[in-house]
Design a binder for these strands. Sequence first.
DNA 1: CGATAGCTTGATACAGATCAAGCAGTGTGG
DNA 2: CCACACTGCTTGATCTGTATCAAGCTATCG
Lengths: 226, 226
Amino acid sequence: MQKEDCLLDRCFLCKHSLPAWKSLIELKKTTFSFKKGKKIFQEGEPVKGIFFIYEGSVKVTMNWGEQKELILRFAKAGDVLGHRGFGGDPFYPISATALEDCKVCFIDNSFLEASLIANPALSNQLMQVFAQELQKAEKRMRDLVHMEVKGRIVLALFEIIDAFGTDENGYISLQISRQDIASYAGTTYETVFKFFTELTGKGILSTSGKSIKINDPKALQSFIKY
Amino acid sequence: MQKEDCLLDRCFLCKHSLPAWKSLIELKKTTFSFKKGKKIFQEGEPVKGIFFIYEGSVKVTMNWGEQKELILRFAKAGDVLGHRGFGGDPFYPISATALEDCKVCFIDNSFLEASLIANPALSNQLMQVFAQELQKAEKRMRDLVHMEVKGRIVLALFEIIDAFGTDENGYISLQISRQDIASYAGTTYETVFKFFTELTGKGILSTSGKSIKINDPKALQSFIKY
DNA sequence: CGATAGCTTGATACAGATCAAGCAGTGTGG
DNA sequence: CCACACTGCTTGATCTGTATCAAGCTATCG
């Protein structure tokens, strides 16, 4: 975790602030680097401010008991992190872990609050973020409850591709473990594994190490049943 | 659905607006009554504005296929409704149905947006609402995924009491069907039914028609396992 | 008084979690 | 350089919670 410079145009806060504020923001914000696997913040920690991802990807998780976790969402460059610290309770209800080496910039709570009051456009922009995430969260809630496991795993794959895209050979740009896919789909490692073997056997999916490639999206779709 | 007067102090919008705006709001807003069981708005309908519940209780639901639904949350007097219409897509992703006779007041989108720009305090207040709901939604998501059915039903009961309270005899103030409890807990009618028979047999719960009373909250708690 | 719909309850089926065993691959010490 | 743990991957076998189905029961209405 070390300080670095942060580019203005990749930072949510700067992008949606008045030009006059930008130099002030630049003074106030701190940029950190996190190695893959490191925790950016953790469930139960006091909320000190808000993060904006400048580079890399992150998983946002919530724990159940000691060993089980649910991945709530994936976040990537340009996304906001830690804004759940808002409403009420000043402790993070969630954890954020780097999935790749990351650079994030951090803004202190008091400065953020001042910015929000001074800058209604920023405030509205952040509200949009909340609104969209709320919609996504509720849709996902329904999916997790009513869909069967295979459909949930397929959805997980589609959403990961949606967020991170694929490389020139069609492989998902993010190296993601089966355990993480399971945690996102709300199932176990073994179930994901068996389903993947089924899919690769049918030629719908290809894997090479931790890289995953979807060959036949239509066939995948068919596992989503209403 | 008929127009009526709306008391200022029960309306979120008025409560968080500058005094100067209140008379204007009074002109702009429209109050409607909905009979028990009536839909206030429905999944897929275009979003025209935002609602504030002034009286009565409401369930917010999302459908899965034709017959299955998930109750996302319960809302009561003082709560905001239909604000999910914000981010992006101008169609409701959810439905809202009156659980009791209701009075709600409605504010047009364009006026709301103007208010938000003109009144940063209101904007921040609404953001708080979003932040809190997002937190709740994500916690619930984890619970629905990792808890077993009995625990989820217990949680449903506690949350209903939390929202609506109990009457002088200890019965839950809201008359709620077993089907709705099932839809909230993400399970089936029969499962709720069997669990209730078990609970009443042990004296933990009492029912009389659609009224429900919890006799032994501690014993109920014990069904929530980590 | 028969029919129809909702309530209650037992029987069955099945998805998917859990468990456990086999099988690499990797590291460590003799 | 080879044996021996050790950890992570792969896979089959079992077990359990819960949905689904179906049948009996009760109440309501024409």
